[in-house]
């Protein structure tokens, strides 16, 4: 089965899935092609693919590939 690694865990990969679709699936927020949430709020999330940051403006144009290592990070409590 085709999989990707998402935040360290294996996840099935459906052909043609964009990074934008994955972020929506994980966060529950619909996104504009710019990567901004449709609800007008701020997403507060960054994505790295195979150790390189993918700017939100490129999420909708980025197709996931088999064995991709994706990290989705956000702000948590910290000094």
């Amino acid at each position: 089965m085709s999989t990707i690694q998402l935040n360290g865990a294996a996840r099935p990969l459906l052909t043609g899935t964009t990074l934008s679709a994955l972020v929506t699936e994980v966060t529950g927020r619909e996104l504009l092609p710019t990567g901004q949430p449709i609800d007008g709020g701020r997403l507060g999330v960054a994505v790295a693919r195979n150790s390189g940051i993918v700017p939100r403006s490129q999420w909708s144009r980025t197709l996931l590939e088999i064995h991709d290592e994706i990290e989705i990070v956000t702000a948590v409590q910290g000094g």
């Binding site: 935040n7 994980v26 989705i72 702000a75 948590v76 409590q77 910290g78």
Partner: peptide
Amino acid sequence: TTVAMRRYAVHGEGNTAGANLFDLLV
């Protein structure tokens, strides 16, 4: 205020405090 950057808690794999924290600060 300071925050740390950590993995987003993917649904069903822990809490979602991260997203809520940013919303709270905004």
